[in-house]
C-alpha cells in the first residue's frame, strides 16, 4: 500500500463532496492510501499569489511542510490547487531568502519547508505509480459502451513551466486512463481549453460562453459524458451547464463525471455509491 498525504481542497469539502467520497471507496483497490491532511489550508486559489505574495508562500510552504513531516508526497485532486501549490513550491525552491523567512515563522509549529515532497495530481499518481496495466487488471466493469470527452482543465497543463507532466498543447494522460478503463475517447479539440471558472463571478457571460464551447463540442461529437480531473471545471460544466447552454442557444445536455467517479464505475461501484446522483445534470 503506497501512502500519500492528501490535500483537502475547499471545494471538495463543500460543493463537490463526492470527489473525496468516491476516492475513499476505491483507493485500496488500487493499492494506494490517501492520508487526509486535516491541517492543510486553502492554497489561495490562484488569487492569493497576487493579493499577498508572501502569505501565499507561507500558506503553501506550510501545506507542503506537513506532508514533508510525514515523509510523503502531497497529492491533490483539484487542478487549481495543484498549479497554485506547485507555483509556490517553485518560488520557494528558487529563493533561499523566502524559504528562510517562512521557515522562521513555521518553526513555532515545529515545521520546516525543505522541498523534499513532490506535489502531484491524483491523475499523475494513477498513471505513474499505480500504472495503467495494473489499473486495467482491476477493471471489473469496462467502460466499453461509453464514448468519453476528456476535459483536462487548464491548471493541470499550464503553465507548463510549473506543471510539466503533459504536453500542454496536446495532452494525453487522461485519454490513456480512459482507455485503460476500457472506454474510448472522442476527438476533442477543447480537451485542453478553459472552463471559465475563474471569472464566473466577475465576467459571467464570458465564462459561460467559454464553457458552452467545450460542452457544445462534446455534445456535437455525441459523447456519452465528459470527464474532468478538476472539481472547479466540474462545477462550471455541470452546475452552470443549463445556464451556459441556454446562453449559447444549445438545446441539449451532457453528464459530467469527476475523474474519481469514472474510475469508481470501472472498478464496479454504482453511480449512487459514487455520488453521481448529486450532480445537477443527470
Amino acid at each position: 500500500m503506497k501512502r500519500y498525504a492528501y490535500y483537502l481542497s475547499c471545494i471538495n469539502e463543500s460543493m463537490t463532496k463526492e470527489v473525496d467520497r468516491s476516492i475513499a471507496l476505491w483507493q485500496k483497490d488500487l493499492g494506494i492510501e490517501l492520508v487526509h491532511l486535516h491541517e492543510s489550508t486553502c492554497c489561495g486559489g490562484s488569487n492569493l499569489d497576487y493579493v499577498s505574495p508572501k502569505h501565499f508562500a507561507l500558506v503553501n510552504a506550510r501545506n507542503i511542510a506537513h506532508a514533508e513531516k510525514m515523509g510523503l508526497d502531497l497529492v491533490v485532486s483539484c487542478n487549481t490547487c495543484l498549479m497554485t501549490i506547485r507555483t509556490a513550491k517553485k518560488k520557494l525552491d528558487a529563493s533561499p531568502e523566502l524559504r528562510a523567512e517562512v521557515n522562521d515563522i513555521l518553526k513555532a509549529e515545529g515545521l520546516e519547508y525543505r522541498g523534499t515532497s513532490e506535489v502531484r495530481h491524483l491523475l499523475w499518481v494513477l498513471i505513474d505509480d499505480v500504472g495503467l496495466e495494473a489499473i486495467k487488471a482491476k477493471v471489473t466493469v469496462p467502460l466499453s459502451k461509453y464514448r468519453i470527452a476528456p476535459f483536462y482543465g487548464c491548471h493541470i497543463l499550464r503553465p507548463s513551466t510549473v506543471l510539466g507532466k503533459d504536453n500542454p498543447l496536446d495532452p494525453s494522460s487522461l485519454d490513456q486512463l480512459v482507455e485503460a478503463l476500457g472506454g474510448s475517447t472522442i476527438p476533442y479539440t477543447h480537451k485542453n481549453r478553459c472552463c471559465g471558472f475563474h471569472t464566473l463571478l466577475v465576467a459571467e457571460e464570458e465564462s459561460l460562453s467559454v464553457a458552452a464551447e467545450a460542452l457544445g463540442e462534446a455534445i456535437d461529437e455525441k459523447a456519452d459524458f465528459i470527464v474532468t480531473p478538476c472539481p472547479l471545471c466540474h462545477t462550471v460544466l455541470d452546475g452552470y451547464q443549463a445556464k451556459a447552454l441556454k446562453q449559447a442557444d444549445i438545446h441539449s445536455s451532457i453528464p459530467v463525471l469527476h475523474l474519481s467517479e469514472m474510475v469508481g464505475l470501472a472498478l464496479g461501484y454504482t453511480a449512487k455509491e459514487l455520488g453521481v446522483k448529486r450532480h445537477i445534470v443527470s
Binding site: S46, C154, H155, L157, R158, P159, S160, P168, L169, R193, C194, G196, F197, H198, T199, V202, A203, E206, S207, V210
Partner: peptide, 13 residues
C-alpha cells in the same frame, strides 16, 4: 484586467 480567467494559454503560446 479582472476579466482574465487564468487559463495561461497566452503565456503557453
Amino acid at each position: 484586467v479582472w476579466d482574465c480567467t487564468h487559463c495561461y494559454r497566452c503565456q503557453e503560446t
